[in-house]
């Protein structure tokens, strides 16, 4: 198998896996908590391995997420492409940060994504401030270091340079 196809299979497998994790229903206990695994994966690939994930790929996975979640078609596509672009643009700075600073950057990126989502919902006529969303973002940022290490390990195994 050629190098390119191998890497492509790897990245899309991870993206599908994170998509499923995002829409997977959680037990009643976690009601309202929804961790944006897809956004985390997009940030990871945009920072650490630019050749695998670009703006267009991020937006198409966002489109899939919109279909699955039954929201406005294009909302997640827009958010994920902006997140991908920002983390791609500042990848050189972000890469050299220690883990906890990358965590803060993730928190900012996810919050910005949620802000865009709030704007879009405001335009389409319904705004409901949900506290759980912001909790989810904080939890996602706290999970980030573990998530990053796991993806790095997987990447070292499966991605051919």
């Amino acid at each position: 198998m050629s190098r390119k196809i191998n890497n492509l299979i790897f990245v899309w497998f991870i993206m599908l896996l994170t998509t499923m994790m995002t829409i997977m229903p959680l037990p009643e206990f976690f009601y309202g908590i929804r961790i944006e695994w897809v956004a985390l994966a997009v940030i990871f690939f945009s920072i650490m391995n630019v050749s695998l994930m670009g703006v267009i790929a991020a937006s198409s996975i966002g489109l899939l997420l919109d279909l699955l979640q039954g929201g406005l078609l294009g909302e997640n596509a827009l958010i994920l492409s902006v997140i991908s672009y920002l983390s791609y643009r500042f990848r050189f700075q972000i890469r050299v940060y220690p883990d906890w600073q990358i965590m803060v950057v993730t928190l900012f990126l996810l919050s910005f994504g949620n802000l865009i989502s709030l704007w879009i919902r405001g335009f389409s006529g319904q705004v409901l401030f949900v506290t759980e969303e912001w909790f989810s973002i904080i939890i996602a940022a706290l999970i980030w270091p573990i998530f990053m290490r796991m993806l790095q390990t997987l990447q070292n195994y499966f991605v051919e340079e």
Partner: peptide, 26 residues
């Protein structure tokens, strides 16, 4: 070209979202 791509994606998804609120072909 990532900036151009971003602008392209923003335009396309805005059109899609508008269509979706207007019950268009989406």
């Amino acid at each position: 070209y990532s900036s151009y791509r971003l602008i392209f994606v923003i335009i396309v998804s805005s059109i899609l979202m508008y269509q979706d609120t207007q019950d268009g072909y989406s």
